[in-house]
Design a binder for these strands. Structure first.
Lengths: 253, 253
DNA sequence: CAGTGGTCTAGACCACTGC
DNA sequence: CAGTGGTCTAGACCACTGA
């Protein structure tokens, strides 16, 4: 056998999806049908379907069947918009914003906690692992669809005794608050990666297997040091990050 | 049974990984061992391991065993570095660049092809699906590790009869060439997403299951229209995209 | 060679869905 | 209720690895 039988079955189904014989939303043949079609055992058929599921091509629903994944219109988060022409102007949008303007994003109230920094947080804030940091968390949904988890980490010496330690929104925004505290933000670095979700993220986003998350680590700097790390986690199947540089001609659509 | 047995087994293994009882690189108990440990059948044990594999926590190697994934030091690609202070200066680095300066990136020779635009390419170039486009492809590796696939798409009316249609590198770079052809690049939009790799990408990157890819669609604009779409595909487990805005203090590390 | 994971079978029972 | 996928078992043989 050059190729495993479950691979063959998966390949045939994939071909049918790629060729359009099976359209997004269409039901795949049932497992008993595939058993007869390919003269295989049910476990082998299930292996084939699991393969496609983990590649994000298929979703299965108990009692209903397996279906070709329907790509959803993604939300767009604007990472930054930078015109290099006008000078002296700080980038205005430091928070990712939702591009789909017809949908109102809902965000949860901010929850605040104080705990030791993990290795990855400590490295970015240039402090030691285990040093206390103030963490402000919130989730975001659009039209009932959860799409973002966010956590901001502040070094304790910056946040202690300030409004940053209090739950709830900060009226003037945290960038302004930090500036008032003597930590003016002059720049930031976004580090963007992708990975598979953990259990908490799968549950919050309602992700099926075969769907990654996008992670943005935004480290903000004053003239002297990192003053904040904000970690955004997005569902990879519904979010695109946009980043605009220079001048873009106006578009119709 | 509140929870499926294979879920229980997976949870226990995950706990051992999270708690550090199983370190990255450690071998998990063998399948026969897990069968005895949890009084389960081998298929059930394999289901548990498959779950962890698809979450990217575990990799299995035939004849050797299953191992806790070892996170590799990621390569960093610089998407853009923008100081908003100095005026009139176009962003200098339009090609993602490798941050690990101790490693020399190798790139393949560019391959050129002319073919009809897919729907997604057409939409970004603001042409019609099926319109011919010139495609320039290349792959990139670092220290023998494949890390990037790249494809640039040019509308035919821009590229036809120019050096863009010839294979091999463009000495002065395609941005300069486009400018010489009357299409000066004034800005671009990056659209960043994550998804599971297709068969070609898995093969090129040597990705195991449970590892996504990062995709960057960079659409470049002249004063009037899109002049190029470049699609970068990176292995998600080894690449981070960086994007710097404003002024960042010098760091020691 | 012994031990490991990879593939496959045949059959059982359960849980969910829509009619 | 019939039809769907979800879980689980017991056993077989193959393919790869390192000693």
């Amino acid at each position: 056998m050059a190729q495993a039988k479950y691979q063959e079955i998966a390949d045939r189904l994939r071909d049918q999806i790629d060729s359009g014989a099976l359209q997004p939303g269409d039901r795949l043949p049932s497992e008993p049908d595939l058993v007869k079609l390919h003269d295989a055992s049910r476990n082998t058929v299930r292996l084939a379907i699991a393969l496609l599921t983990n590649q994000g091509l298929v979703v299965t629903r108990q009692g209903l069947g397996s279906f070709v994944s329907e790509p959803a219109e993604p939300f767009t988060a604007l990472l930054s918009r930078v015109q290099s022409q006008p000078a002296g102007q700080s980038p205005s949008t430091l928070l990712p914003q939702v591009g789909n303007l017809d949908l109102e994003p809902e965000t949860s109230r901010q929850v605040v906690e104080k705990s030791p920094a993990s290795a990855s947080v400590a490295q970015k804030l240039e402090i030691s692992t285990g040093d206390l940091v103030v963490i402000r968390r919130r989730h975001g949904s659009i039209g009932g669809v959860p799409w973002m988890m966010m956590a901001s980490y502040f070094p304790l010496d910056i946040a202690e005794g300030t409004q940053l330690e209090q739950a709830g929104d900060i009226a003037q925004g945290s960038i302004r608050l930090l500036a008032d505290l003597g930590h003016e933000q002059l720049g930031f670095i976004d580090e963007i990666g992708a990975r598979m979700p953990n259990a908490r993220e799968s549950a919050f986003f309602g992700l099926s297997t075969g769907a990654p998350v996008l992670v943005v680590n935004r480290t903000a700097y004053s003239k002297y040091r990192p003053i904040r790390l904000t970690r955004y986690t997005y569902r990879g199947d519904r979010v695109r990050l946009n980043h605009e540089v220079g001048s873009i001609p106006a578009r119709d659509s």
